[in-house]
């Protein structure tokens, strides 16, 4: 350890290299990009998912639309009450808005494929799966009403989002 002994001289050391600073910043950037990606829309309703064993993974390529059902968060309860509400995109909507929401989603799927080939866009829009994120305490009556709306809107492929337990 004699190497480090006697370093008493108080001279100005060389400037600390900042070459790696960009790396750190980029790392932080990437981290936040990834971490916030899963929460792309703000939650207006509280959803605690039910759990199940027999589940399947979603295919990445299939287009999806999310509908969330739950009791509004505290801040929203003044406006929307404390009964189960429907969240489409990032706002609480009425169940009558579901069909409009489905049409919008389909239109946006079609427009993303419009340049490549409109036919693919049409078939992709047909394949759209509606993911239902429903709070486990929700009463089935509400869920059923939403399902009826989906049937009316010809969105027959649905997926109940659950927590996987093994």
């Amino acid at each position: 350890m004699s190497k480090f002994d006697g370093g008493k001289k108080k001279k100005d050391g060389p400037a600390i290299s900042t070459a790696s600073l960009p790396d750190i910043v980029f790392m932080l950037l990437f981290f936040f990009m990834v971490a916030t990606n899963s929460k792309d829309n703000e939650a207006s309703v509280m959803v605690s998912l039910p759990s199940a064993v027999e589940t399947g993974k979603l295919e990445d390529k299939t287009p999806t639309a999310y509908i969330q059902l739950g009791i509004p968060v505290k801040a929203m309860q003044k406006i929307y009450g404390d009964k189960t509400a429907i969240q489409l995109n990032d706002a609480i909507k009425r169940k009558e808005d579901i069909r409009l929401f489905l049409d919008e989603k389909r239109a946006s799927i079609k427009s993303t494929y419009a340049e490549v080939s409109p036919e693919i866009g049409v078939s992709k829009a047909k394949q759209m799966i509606v993911c239902l994120k429903v709070d486990k305490k929700t009463k089935l009556g509400v869920v059923s009403e939403v399902k009826e709306e989906l049937r009316d809107g010809a969105a027959l492929k649905i997926n109940y989002i659950v927590n996987e337990t093994k």
């Binding site: 971490a35 990606n37 049937r151 010809a154 649905i158 659950v162």
Partner: peptide, 20 residues
């Protein structure tokens, strides 16, 4: 961070609704 933080793995139960 990438490995340890779980990105809320969602699984689903698929169901086909009957046509109207």
């Amino acid at each position: 961070f990438l490995v340890t933080s779980e990105m809320s793995k969602e699984a689903g139960m698929f169901q086909l609704l009957p046509e109207k």
